[in-house]
Write a protein that binds this DNA or RNA. Structure first.
Lengths: 231, 231
DNA sequence: CGCGAGCTTGACGTTGTTCAACTAGAGTGG
DNA sequence: CCACTCTAGTTGAACAACGTCAAGCTCGCG
């Protein structure tokens, strides 16, 4: 990781989080004093599960994967985050640990904001803390969907879910080139890599998607949604 | 459900949530005006997934199960809640819907607090909103453990996890009589009822637990923890 | 006494993982 | 420029894990 130039200011930051919309100029200036930009190469780890939570991160460029590591070093990818996105974690206001790991999927950069500074602003701006509560609850909702997908759906449904997730929530296009490896994709759906590949092939053969290497194209989104529901 | 007598006051409520510890007397009095006690019989539903979130509930007696319903009417039990516990939901400050269902496992009672009143107190008491953020994050942490348990562990590990959960987090005893059905237990670990029963029998045969009907006794807690880890 | 709901057991089938082998492409050094 | 290696992707076959189905059981209750 490398510390980048401090060339933008929080007040007129183009990647300002919607959460920070209602902050005063003073509050933004205060955050600005307590942040620094860092860039990461593809593959580098920004937060490590079990480590100490000292900063939260606002994604300014690139793509990150958020994942849980279990005791056997198997990963479960929770989400993919792009700008403007926030990387924090449930350690905030609990025991100040990281409960997941985060790594860069491509060359990326973030603003690291001191967690104490964030807390201070949170304590003095009521609107922010209310909005933050809404943000946390939104995360909860997404997690419930994920829980149902991973525990109550078969392979086909789970693969369909990840493809729809990438197209609609990450790349915002039915035609995308991903930097996620096959293992990452499998970890998103809690499948073995081989199983994921087999389902991909089935989907290709039946004409609902096309792909070559890491270039995917969703042909029949409705078919995928149907597969997601029934299985 | 039946509305109960308003015989206790929030100010000196014996089941006051730790979250409400730092509220002023005025704030507690305000909540007191905007709440009512309701009792439920075993099996009755208090919140229904998809319904409108109008109240949050503070559990004053009994036991509740919180569960997700999928499109095929299969349930996933997220947690069991006892007093003093809070039943709210991620619809708060998002879209005011219930994202899970809650039903009583035995004759129980709750205080229903108007969600607008809760929001008002939250907006005027900074300490409460910060603590609430911590509370939500704590929920998140528990959810991650659950996610790993359900997706990365085999049947033995998942059954061990639910038994440990009941003993250590619900009944606070290694010897407990549960009102959860076998189906509820299976839904806690995302297994078929028959599979859960088979593993229970294995555990009984190998001497790590005893049970007769719904009366369970954990004989070898360490063995269960080991099973939870390796599988 | 009979009925029904929840529990239990066994046999069987399906789903998804594991293992092993093979392939393709990207670096690396002689 | 050509072996060589290393990694990621792919495929097939064997296997294990788990769910489904069907039958019988128990116990409380009318």
């Amino acid at each position: 990781m490398a510390q980048g130039p401090k060339n933008i200011n929080c007040v007129n930051c183009p990647f300002k989080l919607t959460l920070f919309q209602h902050l005063t100029k003073d509050e933004l200036a205060y955050l600005d004093e307590n942040r620094y930009e860092v860039s990461f190469n593809a593959g580098e780890t920004i937060f490590k599960q079990g480590g100490v939570l000292t900063h939260m991160a606002a994604v300014t460029s690139g793509l990150f994967k958020i994942y849980l590591e279990d005791s056997n070093k198997n990963n479960l990818v929770l989400a993919i985050t792009k700008p403007p996105g926030i990387l924090g974690g449930p350690g905030f206001m609990t025991d100040s640990k990281h409960y997941f790991s985060v790594s860069a999927l491509e060359n990326s950069s973030v603003c690291l904001i001191d967690i104490k500074a964030f807390e201070k602003v949170l304590r003095q701006n009521q609107e922010l803390s209310i909005n933050f509560i809404g943000y946390l609850n939104q995360k909860h909702i997404v997690m419930y969907e994920k829980l149902i997908s991973l525990t109550h759906k078969n392979m086909h449904g789970r693969v369909a879910d990840t493809l729809l997730y990438l197209a609609n929530s990450v790349y915002n296009s039915s035609d995308f080139n991903t930097t996620l490896s096959r293992q990452d994709l499998a970890d998103l759906s809690s499948l073995a890599k081989e199983s994921y590949i087999r389902i991909l092939k089935e989907f290709k053969d039946s004409g609902v998607i096309q792909f070559e290497g890491n270039n995917f194209k969703i042909i029949d989104q409705k078919a995928l949604q149907k597969i997601s529901q029934i299985s």
